[in-house]
Design a protein around this nucleic acid. Structure first.
Ligand SMILES: [Zn+2]
Ligand SMILES: [Zn+2]
Ligand SMILES: [Zn+2]
Ligand SMILES: [Zn+2]
Lengths: 141, 141
DNA sequence: ACGCAGTTTGACAACGGTTCTCATCTAGGA
DNA sequence: TCCTAGATGAGAACCGTTGTCAAACTGCGT
């Protein structure tokens, strides 16, 4: 497994902004972009600088407190996950709803197929996307 | 399965630029960015506008002639693959070397786990990265 | 070979997300 | 309370990518 990342996480101060960002993240099952979060906070009269939102999201992602994935057009979106354990997501292309999933089969396959080709320090990302039941229903209505 | 993409691909003219770009792509086992390709062509005295490189790469990607993945920092990188069939890549974090791999287990797992949660029109992306044998050796030397 | 219509190209501007700068503010231990 | 390293925010800077539009080119019919 290994996790050479996560060096510190220690010296992080609980500022008003930091808390606001974390809260904005928990409470939704969707991945949100830094800008969306910034806008959401502003709407709620929580004044937080855009740069601060970016910085904290990155920090949280680095500490593994939130997951990050890249939209098809390269935008980074974040989500605070229910578990700290390694997992993946199934995301709805239409509404953004994301559910967490795991699967030993994939984990082992990734490790094995990479090792077969002489690779080491193997990592992987798996993203599954589709239309959630609700969106599929809305579409055919 | 399904492939609702790939609508036409018919009316595409074989221009000097188009050929140069395709050639620059075939011949390397690494994923290259639009800018890298543009620079490589310039170095070879093949004058091709940057916008043209972007346009053609996108078109080729849309036609499935090349594969695109996003770098960790959101940059799009392209590679002309050996096969047209669905597959994934194991990429070296250090030198960019990429080998193509397949695995029914993953394909089925992705489909199954998404369907379990009520998703339809399921797609997926899987990227594995690590250190290739050569880079690992160079590092410990 | 010639001409025309629809493509494609290229220089450059415009965009949008992200990062940088740096003066100012703040949490928290001494 | 004081002091200091860490944190913040406004705005500029960055940088990959996309849009603009006139000029150049290609396939095709004549
Ligand atoms: Zn949905
Ligand atoms: Zn995994
Ligand atoms: Zn390598
Ligand atoms: Zn696959």
């Amino acid at each position: 497994m290994s996790e050479q990342l996560r060096t510190d996480r220690a010296d992080r101060r609980p500022t008003r902004q930091r808390t606001a960002i974390a809260e904005a993240l928990s409470g939704t099952a969707e991945f949100r972009s830094a800008q969306e979060i910034h806008a959401a906070l502003a709407r709620r009269d929580e004044r937080v600088g855009l740069a601060t939102v970016y910085r904290n999201l990155q920090a949280m992602a680095g500490d593994g407190e939130v997951d990050v994935i890249r939209t098809a057009d390269g935008e980074a979106v974040y989500r605070s996950c229910a578990t700290d354990d390694h997992h993946h997501h199934v995301v709805c292309r239409s509404c953004g709803l994301a559910v967490e999933v795991t699967g030993d089969a994939v984990e082992r396959w990734a490790e094995a197929v990479a090792a077969e080709h002489g690779f080491t320090e193997i990592r992987h990302t798996v993203e599954i996307d589709g239309l959630c039941a609700a969106c599929a229903a809305a579409r055919t209505r």
